[in-house]
Simulated assay, not measured.
Amino acid sequence: MNILLTTFPEQRSANVGDALIAFSALNLLQARYREYSPKVLYREFDLDTLGHHKADSVLAPGFSVSEGVYRNLYSLYADLDRLAHFYPVGCSFQTPLIPGKPLNAFRYGNDTVSFLRNMATRFGPLPCRDASIVRILENNGIAAVYSGDLALFDETLVGKEFTGSAEPSSIVVTIGHHPKYAHQSLRLMHLLKEHFKDAKLYVAFHSRPNGHSLQLAAQATRLGFSELHLYGSVDNLNIYDSIDFHIGYRLHGHVAFLRRRKPSVLLMEDVRSYGFASTPGMEVGCIQAFVQDSLEPEEKAAEAAIGFARDQLRENFLGYARCFASIDRTYTDFIAPYFNNLARNLYLEDSATHKTQYLTEVPIS
């Protein structure tokens, strides 16, 4: 039995960004090994409850390397020796930002250090979705490597030349996680109305609505924005195929546009987006939503975001070519070799059990 542990909280927030991560991992692997058909389980699932059904492999896209990951975020097995073939990739990290304290200064507790070092020793350096996570792990004596966010990679578009983009006829704003940015978000939407008078404007939910997001969306609709409820199935994001430009707070709203070779502006509200922007080449279009020293909302962040977009528009958004080149390099240097080898390993493991006849030709690298 092959298992994929997803971070997608279907019964909770239904965050579509998590769905996109799992979707991307499956596409990358099944393109190389079409027989791969895992049992998809939420990350908290206790593998011990499978009883005699052995997990031949465990793929964990977006695996969290946050404090308390083992047993608090991921149950895995009580006896980690039973975890024979484990593939964490695109590892994520989350912790509250602390005013005046650099993210690189983060230190894990002893139990988490022990677990993560054990995983890196047994299964290789932990592949991380941004450069800051690599630095945090290495500063804690844990081997790590940069893999990029898996959701960035659509193999039908990777390597495609970016020739620029015209003035957007449609723009979507994604609603952030944190209520403290509500005033800043509303200011952003007012500025979009002012500067892009002819564009069709949308406001998008990436998670199930809550009080904060509903209130902000109501204000947006009074300004003439149309609501998009995109949480849940990754298919909901297909509407982005027909929208020209994203500007907002959701990291995977930003990533969903970069994946499509479209320009996007991300207002960085927390450690996830802050870490993303710390990666060389990926800082394009990233605007800090908070003041570094106090973590209070930056008063002019909305103006900075619109100003950046207007500057890029005058150059047909060609400044994004550097971002797409970075994505392509990461694909060539890490993603393609990693998933080639993963497909090969799974093919050999499955063939050894004589479960079925496989017709897919698996790259050997």
Results as ranks from 00 to 15, higher is better:
Tyr231Leu: 03
Tyr231Arg: 03
Gly232Gln: 08
Gly232Lys: 05
Ser233Tyr: 12
Ser233His: 14
Ser233Thr: 15
Ser233Phe: 10
Ser233Glu: 15
Ser233Asn: 15
Val234Gln: 07
Val234Ile: 05
Val234Ala: 13
Val234Met: 09
Val234His: 14
Val234Asp: 10
Asp235Asn: 12
Asp235Ile: 05
Asp235Ser: 11
Asp235Pro: 02
Asp235Thr: 11
Asn236Cys: 05
Asn236Ala: 10
Asn236Glu: 10
Asn236Arg: 08
Leu237Arg: 04
Leu237Ser: 02
Leu237Phe: 06
Leu237Pro: 01
Leu237Cys: 05
Leu237Thr: 03
Leu237Gly: 02
Leu237Glu: 02
Asn238Val: 10
Asn238Arg: 13
Asn238Ile: 13
Asn238Gly: 11
Ile239Arg: 09
Ile239Phe: 11
Ile239Gln: 06
Tyr240Asn: 04
Tyr240Thr: 07
Tyr240Ala: 01
Tyr240Ser: 02
Tyr240Met: 10
Asp241His: 13
Asp241Ala: 03
Asp241Met: 03
Ser242His: 14
Ser242Met: 14
Ser242Ala: 13
Ser242Thr: 14
Ser242Tyr: 11
Ile243Glu: 04
Ile243Tyr: 05
Ile243Gly: 02
Ile243Trp: 03
Ile243Met: 04
Asp244Met: 13
Asp244Ile: 11
Asp244Pro: 09
Asp244Leu: 13
Asp244His: 15
Asp244Asn: 12
Phe245Ile: 07
Phe245Ala: 08
His246Ala: 13
His246Lys: 10
His246Thr: 09
His246Trp: 05
His246Glu: 13
His246Phe: 09
His246Cys: 12
Ile247His: 11
Ile247Pro: 10
Ile247Lys: 10
Ile247Asn: 05
Gly248Trp: 08
Gly248Ala: 04
Gly248Leu: 02
Gly248Asp: 06
Tyr249Ser: 01
Tyr249Ala: 00
Tyr249Asp: 00
Arg250Gln: 02
Arg250Phe: 03
Arg250Lys: 14
Arg250Leu: 03
Arg250Thr: 00
Arg250His: 04
Arg250Ala: 01
Arg250Cys: 00
Arg250Tyr: 03
Arg250Asn: 01
Leu251His: 13
Leu251Asp: 10
Leu251Phe: 08
Leu251Ala: 06
Leu251Trp: 07
Leu251Pro: 06
Leu251Gly: 05
His252Met: 09
His252Arg: 07
His252Ser: 09
His252Gln: 10
Gly253Arg: 03
Gly253Asp: 07
His254Leu: 13
His254Asp: 08
His254Asn: 15
Val255Ile: 15
Val255Leu: 12
Val255Glu: 14
Ala256Thr: 08
Ala256Cys: 12
Ala256Glu: 11
Ala256Ser: 15
Phe257His: 12
Phe257Cys: 04
Phe257Thr: 06
Leu258Arg: 15
Leu258Thr: 14
Arg259Phe: 12
Arg259Val: 04
Arg259Leu: 09
Arg259Gly: 03
Arg260Ile: 02
Arg260Pro: 01
Arg260Met: 01
Arg260Glu: 01
Arg260Phe: 02
Arg260Thr: 00
Arg261Glu: 00
Arg261Trp: 02
Arg261Tyr: 01
Lys262Tyr: 00
Lys262Leu: 01
Lys262Ile: 02
Lys262Val: 02
Lys262Thr: 00
Lys262Gln: 01
Lys262Asp: 00
